[in-house]
Design a protein around this nucleic acid. Structure first.
Length: 111
DNA sequence: TGATAGCAGCGTCAGGGTTT
DNA sequence: AAACCCTGACGCTGCTATCA
C-alpha cells in the first residue's frame, strides 16, 4: 500500500493529533462522502465510496483495539520476566550462602 | 514560574505471518 | 490469493520532575 505522502506535513500543524489529520487514500474525498445527509438518494459511486470508508473505519477500529491488546500483553510479558529475574536472583543468593556454609564445614573438618 | 527533558500511553501505518 | 491478525516503528499528547 502506498504511503499517503501528506503525513509529515499534517503532523506539523499541531492543533490536532496527527492521526486525526492524516487523510486516508488521498483521492477518496472521505469528508465529502461523510457529510452527505442520510436518507437522500445516492449514486452507485457514492455508495461505493461510503462502503470503502466504512471498511476503513472498521479496520482502524479493529487495529486500535489490537494495538491496545498487544501493548497489554507486552507489559504482562515484561512483568513476568521481571518476576522471574527476582526469583532467580533469590535462588542464586541462597545457593551462594549454601555453598559458603558447606565450604566452612569442609574447612573445619580439614583442620 | 516558565522551559525543558523524560516517560507512558495512544492511534496509525507498514509489513510479515496466519487463516480461510 | 485475499482477508485477517499481530506487532515494531513513528509521531503525537499529557503528565511529572527538575532546573535556572
Amino acid at each position: 500500500m502506498a504511503v499517503t505522502g501528506d503525513e509529515t506535513e499534517s503532523a506539523a500543524t499541531g492543533d490536532m493529533p496527527a492521526y486525526q489529520l492524516r487523510s486516508p487514500n488521498s483521492s477518496l474525498a472521505q469528508n465529502i462522502v461523510m457529510a452527505a445527509s442520510p436518507g437522500t438518494m445516492q449514486s452507485p459511486s457514492s455508495q461505493h465510496a461510503e462502503e470503502i470508508t466504512r471498511k476503513r473505519e472498521v479496520r482502524l477500529m479493529k487495529n486500535r483495539e489490537a494495538a491496545r491488546e498487544c501493548r497489554r500483553k507486552k507489559k504482562e510479558y515484561v512483568k513476568c520476566l521481571e518476576n522471574r529475574v527476582a526469583v532467580l536472583e533469590n535462588q542464586n543468593k541462597t545457593l551462594i550462602e549454601e555453598l559458603k556454609a558447606l565450604k566452612d564445614i569442609y574447612c573445619h573438618k580439614a583442620e
